[in-house]
């Protein structure tokens, strides 16, 4: 690599392709970050084990496929249920003791992530595992100069569906109203008869389930390794914090960050793009620590 070929010259067609790749990156980051957004936004819990919940989702899919011969599409809801039950267990045993101590949740969940990584490594070994995706998703859409792998398109659609479902639950159901009430003011919500502990449990389980589904989808893109989750956690957190810990904010920030990542890596390369992007995010947070979108509610 010399300095001259470090910069890729601009070319419209491949640049447009890069924009699509950006959308694909955005969908991956978003789906990794939705669960985190809900957990952090509602409970103020920094779940560093979120990446490992994604990893568990991927391995669960692998187990369901390999030992129970369950088709991929049916795996998705099953993984959601299994991982959210696990999330419920974590919430009951660890997280529950640490409300009002956000920094300690960060540390305790980091310890948890060490346990999960090593636990999976002991059970499944270090050899990479694979999730097979249905053959009907193995197509390639070619629109002139655009080339879209079918599975990436599927992930974008799945992300959209999950976001819609989450939005619907949060804004169109009584349960969602309760969650948002607890989010806005836990004490006031309690005095109206909402059991905030129960809301926290279910919210954490739901967020964990979403991470599991994300893992099932990522399993189709990449090989499964016990430490695969750590590759997502930083990006997912940045999406959440830049977005302002809200569903809408996370959608915007993941699209912006995904596109920027893709554009930077189009002109330079992947890792340098990461450097530029992370530095930009740090500078952005310096000027707007509350993130892109805020609802003027209590913070920190």
């Amino acid at each position: 690599m010399s300095v001259t070929d470090f910069w890729t010259p601009f070319e419209l067609n491949s640049f447009l392709n890069a924009l699509f790749i950006g959308l694909s990156i955005a969908s991956i980051w978003l789906i990794a970050a939705v669960g985190l957004t809900i957990i952090y936004g509602t409970m103020g819990v920094i779940n560093m084990a979120h990446g490992e919940l994604i990893m568990l989702g991927a391995y669960t899919t692998y187990v369901l496929q390999t030992f129970f011969y369950i088709p991929f599409l049916l795996c998705l809801p099953l993984v959601f249920i299994i991982v959210s039950i696990f999330g419920l267990f974590i919430e009951r045993t660890i997280i529950r003791r640490l409300y009002n101590r956000p920094l300690d949740t960060l540390l305790a969940t980091w310890g948890l992530s060490l346990i999960l990584i090593q636990g999976v490594r002991v059970i499944f070994g270090t050899a990479p595992k694979y999730v097979s995706i249905p053959s009907w998703l193995n197509f390639q859409v070619s629109l002139g100069f655009l080339h879209l792998p079918g599975f990436r398109l599927f992930i974008i659609l799945a992300t959209a569906a999950l976001i819609f479902a989450t939005w619907y639950i949060a804004y169109r159901t009584t349960w969602g109203i309760r969650v948002r009430a607890v989010m806005a003011d836990p004490d006031m919500a309690s005095s109206f008869g909402i059991d905030s502990n129960r809301i926290y449990s279910i919210t954490f389980a739901y967020g964990a389930g979403l991470a599991g589904v994300a893992g099932a989808l990522f399993g189709g893109l990449k090989t499964l390794l016990p430490d695969m989750g750590s590759g997502y956690i930083v990006e997912a957190f940045l999406v959440v914090v830049v977005g302002g810990t809200q569903l809408l904010g996370s959608i915007f920030s993941s699209i912006i960050l995904g596109e920027l990542a893709s554009i930077f890596s189009y002109f330079t390369n992947d890792t340098f793009a990461r450097f530029v992007l992370f530095t930009l995010i740090v500078i952005f947070l310096r000027f707007r620590p509350q993130g892109l979108i805020t609802e003027g509610m209590k913070r920190r």
Binding site: I46, P102, L106, V234, F237, R274, F278, T279, P289, R300
Partner: peptide
């Protein structure tokens, strides 16, 4: 608080 943790984390990753 948490934001310092996240920003230092991002900088380290960079």
């Amino acid at each position: 608080g948490v934001f310092v943790a996240i920003m230092t984390l991002a900088m380290l990753a960079a």
